[in-house]
């Protein structure tokens, strides 16, 4: 168990370092001149002032070789310093720290809604004996995956804010302002959860151990509760890290639609102004969120699936047995 935890921790650190490296490769080494991009923003197509360009190059270290740049940036990032924004001059760490709580609330609520809806749809579909209900429920996730998030947000705004005046259209004030963005963000995620979970449940229903359980005389409810749900949810648990990461990506669109302050808005602004240090900081933080979620999932995984700890003696009290 200890080696398992240590190995996961080391893996998480490695992924984080690699994510930093990838973002560095993309942002600093793609065949484009970051300084020209930065200056281009303010200059509006005029000729770039060579003196100012040289000054910027020196300030952001672009005059150094790529390896030096990389080492300098990595060292700074390890101390928690993500550099300063080009457009505003503010420290990137501070910008992200300010924006993050709002987005955490939004993403947290969206995750709860999505889990409730996704798990509800999939479980009900495999609980019911009515074929029409199952078909109806299973038709929902493909629909949820197909609708563009930004469009859902606008339709909800139109209906609930401009037609029925139930929720505020913009801003970060109070819980009411959180509802529509969270629902918008949750729809796509709920659809994915429902798809992965119902796939898992479908496979679990067909597994021979289900037949064994029925042959013991177990009821349908018991088979679903004790065997199918637990086995069928394993694939969903495994992709939870990716899903939470994508949730963070989704806030870019949703916070823009609802004009909320937060992580996503920060991304949108930074990309629009091509503020490279901020973009890199945001990418690294998003990867960190993914890595942390995955780490939690990995640590919880042996409790759900004893096979993860190969050869060991069953792990400590899962107590998940007969229920």
């Amino acid at each position: 168990m200890v080696t398992y935890v240590l190995r996961r921790l080391a893996g998480a650190a490695a992924v984080l370092w690699a994510a930093f490296t990838v973002s560095f490769l993309i942002l600093y080494l793609l065949p484009s001149d970051p300084v020209a991009i930065m200056l281009d923003q303010g200059a509006g197509g005029e000729r770039v002032d060579p003196a100012r360009a040289a000054e910027l190059r020196e300030r952001y270290g672009f005059d150094q070789g790529p390896v030096r740049q990389y080492v300098t940036l990595l060292g700074r990032t390890l101390t928690g310093d993500l550099g300063t924004s080009i457009s505003s001059g503010a420290p990137v760490t501070g910008l992200i720290a300010d924006a993050f709580p709002e987005t955490a609330k939004l993403a947290g609520l969206a995750l709860l809604l999505a889990l409730a809806a996704g798990v509800g749809i999939a479980t009900l579909a495999y609980w019911t004996r009515a074929a029409w209900l199952r078909d109806l429920l299973l038709a929902l996730p493909p629909l949820g995956v197909a609708v563009p998030g930004f469009w859902v947000g606008l339709v909800l705004l139109h209906l609930f804010s401009f037609t029925w005046f139930l929720f505020p259209a913009v801003g970060n004030e109070g819980f009411a302002s959180l509802v529509l963005p969270a629902v918008t963000l949750a729809i796509g995620l709920a659809a994915v959860i429902a798809q992965v979970l119902s796939q898992g449940l479908r496979e679990a229903w067909r597994a021979p151990y289900v037949e064994t359980a029925f042959a013991k005389g177990s009821s349908r409810a018991r088979v679903l509760g004790a065997h199918v749900l637990r086995n069928g949810s394993l694939p969903t648990v495994a992709v939870l890290g990716v899903l939470v990461g994508n949730l963070l990506g989704g806030t870019v669109v949703v916070e823009t639609v609802f004009s909320r302050q937060g992580f996503g808005r920060l991304v949108e602004n930074a990309v629009t102004t091509q503020d490279i240090p901020v973009v890199q900081g945001l990418v690294v933080v998003a990867a960190a969120v993914f890595v942390l979620t995955s780490l939690l999932v990995d640590l919880a995984h042996p409790l759900l699936d004893p096979r993860v700890l190969r050869g060991g003696h069953g792990g400590s009290g899962t107590g998940g047995g007969a229920r």
Binding site: V22, L30, L248, V253, V279
Partner: peptide, 19 residues
């Protein structure tokens, strides 16, 4: 690692660099 960075953010980072 590419999977560790949310897809949309990865695209946005590339857009930042490419224009």
């Amino acid at each position: 690692v590419l999977l560790a960075i949310p897809g949309l953010l990865l695209s946005l980072a590339v857009v930042t660099a490419l224009g």
